[in-house]
């Protein structure tokens, strides 16, 4: 190994490294996201494209600036900033004013990641930090959706997209449409499952097509880039919680299948909740974590003033994941179980 054969090289553990580096994982996640992004552009036109480009660019630029300012080696090579930007665009409505999306991207990278010390040390998923900030800062714009497959979507931008920075949008588009979740909550109109599954509904840029997201997720799970337990437990728990309410009062509460396929639950479960840094590492912990996220998502959707609960649920899941980890640590072989003393 070393130039001088007489020098013994000593290293601390781990000695055996898995074949997956941060870079391989991240580039594969990136590839898995691209079809979803492409479909979003097909549905919502150049506004979606501009949104995706803006957030990705701003995230990458912010990351490189942060690295420069803190005099650290550039971390652009691990693609994590680009993925943050891409995911942020996919979880925003397609007509989002670009400057607001850019603000969210800066918050994602600076507050969500850099302040904590960079990738691997962030306590919360950076995408969700930026997204939650946007939701709290610009509540009106972030809940104005556009119908998909509008005419002329490839030739002209949506009215809100090109808003002058720091000003509010001049006028909202004539073709705004409520999402399936909003229709269900306020007007008790349930969108058909087929439509939900294919994704030809109004909604956030990348959350609409469940079929495509599941397909891309299946690829990542098959190649073991994300752990199957987290999406499985999240979706399972959301289904069961929703089933309980549906069984109690099918008139008032949506069916469990609707819960599963409407909104961003599947996108969140596969791409946001499963982030390795901010989720528990023990198998049991993953089940608990996913179960909590699914349960909270349904509770927030059904009982709070918010339409979508996935973002909040995953942030709360991130917050408790260190505790879940320390509570579900497997016993050291041969060691006696210490009495829990509080």
């Amino acid at each position: 190994m070393s130039a001088n054969p007489h020098i013994l090289e000593l290293r601390t553990s781990p000695h055996v490294h898995g074949p997956n580096s941060v870079q391989t994982i991240m580039s594969n996640v990136m590839f898995a996201l691209l079809p979803i992004a492409a479909f979003a552009v097909f549905l919502f036109g150049i506004s979606a494209l501009a949104l995706i480009c803006t957030t990705t660019t701003v995230c990458v630029v912010t990351e490189s600036l942060v690295c420069k300012l803190s005099k650290k080696e550039s971390t652009l090579g691990d693609y994590s900033a680009a993925i943050t930007g891409l995911l942020l665009a996919l979880t925003l409505p397609p007509g989002m004013p670009l400057w607001m999306a850019a603000v969210g991207s800066v918050v994602s990278v600076c507050v969500g990641k850099a302040l904590f010390g960079g990738l691997g040390q962030n306590a919360f998923n950076p995408v969700l930090v930026g997204l939650a900030f946007i939701h709290a800062a610009f509540p009106i714009e972030v809940s104005s959706w556009t119908l998909p497959l509008a005419e002329g979507r490839f030739t002209s931008f949506m009215g809100t997209t090109l808003t002058v920075p720091f000003l509010s949008p001049a006028a909202f588009d004539g073709i705004t449409g409520a999402t399936p979740l909003a229709l269900q909550k306020f007007e008790h109109v349930t969108t058909g499952l087929g439509e939900l599954f294919l994704g030809t509904t109004a909604g956030c840029t990348g959350e609409t097509s469940d079929a495509l997201i599941l397909l891309c997720g299946a690829y990542l799970i098959a190649r073991k880039f994300i752990n199957w337990r987290i999406p499985a437990s999240t979706l399972g728990s959301a289904f069961l919680t929703s089933l309980v309410f549906y069984a109690a009062d099918p008139e008032k509460y949506p069916s469990p299948f609707f819960t599963l396929f409407a909104g961003g639950l599947i996108l969140g479960a596969i791409f946001l909740a499963s982030d390795m840094v901010t989720s528990p590492v023990t198998p049991l912990g993953m089940w608990v974590y996913g179960g909590l996220i699914g349960f909270l998502t349904v509770i927030i959707r059904l009982f709070s003033g918010q339409l979508e609960g996935v973002m909040y649920a995953i942030l709360l899941g991130n917050a408790v994941s260190p505790i879940i980890d320390s509570l579900t640590q497997p016993r050291i072989f041969g060691a006696r179980r210490a009495k829990a003393k509080l």
Partner: peptide, 9 residues
Amino acid sequence: ERFEPWAVM
């Protein structure tokens, strides 16, 4: 007039 306030603040 058209300034967009950052409600979160």
